[in-house]
Design a protein around this nucleic acid. Structure first.
Lengths: 152, 152
DNA sequence: CTCTCTGCAAATCTTTTGCAGTCCT
DNA sequence: AGGACTGCAAAAGATTTGCAGAGAG
């Protein structure tokens, strides 16, 4: 397992500042979260963590995810299935999502122009942005082909 | 009460096509929804509808909102408070939202450039977009002033 | 008449919290 | 030692569904 040294420092520093404690559960959850790619629900992560340590509870995973969001190591997104999903920001730049409503496929994209335009709009309203979320739902190219084949 | 003739046609046509029926409850809910500005939760709308007809149930409001989304008369958004909010598209052009995490204020904005860029990105991925949502969270100008006054 | 709709109540599902015992610092 | 943490179980919310009687077509 990689060390994730920098990320751990960020996390532990956040805990220290808030007067919270460093525990083996929190460290394990961070490790598992960082090494897993994808958009995980709290339950998904819980299931993966359980493999490494079956004694860890769902509540702890859930609460640790909130902490990770607070210190900027995780991002919470709702992609349309009614539950929160989390992605880590280890070796990831900020991005937005295309979401296929047919097969659930996620495509990540990044647009400098859109980012700049957003900042410009916020500034025009005297608004100080802290985070944003751009989601585009539709039909991915694979599903369009399937649809045509089905004659729709 | 305005007639909302065009909107009713759209709604009733949608019902007809899907083999659903036109009922007084559905018509009342549509009327109340269209004449109310803002971002309503299903419960908000239910409470307003109850004033006009106390016999209408929450379930019917809830199910009617889903129908209105289906036929494009309503848009569902999650603005961060954990519940779905609905806005009607009567005399409204598409827009996105700035959301103040301090006071909850909503600012609507529209950017042709961002819209175009989104379409371009979708096209580059062979993706056929059906809807999108861009939300920017942060601190509105009023709350920034309050914060400074409080010395933060 | 038939098939959908309605409103109620109850079920679901996710997220959140209270608590008693345990573990960092 | 003291306060935070953990895991369980239960609460809280929002959303969704089953059902029996009512109503549209």
């Amino acid at each position: 397992m990689p060390e994730f040294t920098k990320e751990k420092e960020i996390f532990f520093e956040h805990l220290r500042r808030a007067g919270f404690k460093k525990t083996s559960q929190r460290e394990l959850i961070l490790d598992v979260f960082l090494k897993t790619e994808g958009h995980l629900s709290a339950e998904d992560l819980y299931n993966i963590v359980k493999v490494e340590d079956p004694t860890v509870g769902f509540t702890t995973v859930y609460r640790t995810l909130k902490l990770l969001v607070e210190c900027g190591l995780a991002r919470e997104e709702r992609l349309g299935d009614g539950r929160a999903r989390y992605e880590h920001l280890y070796n990831h730049q900020h991005h937005d999502h295309l979401i296929c409503t047919q097969c659930g496929q996620l495509i990540e994209f990044y647009s400098e122009e859109i980012e700049n335009k957003q900042d410009e709009i916020a500034a025009n309203h005297g608004f100080h942005p802290t985070r944003h979320s751009l989601r585009i739902w539709g039909i991915c190219s694979e599903c369009q082909v399937k649809r045509q084949a089905a004659g729709r």
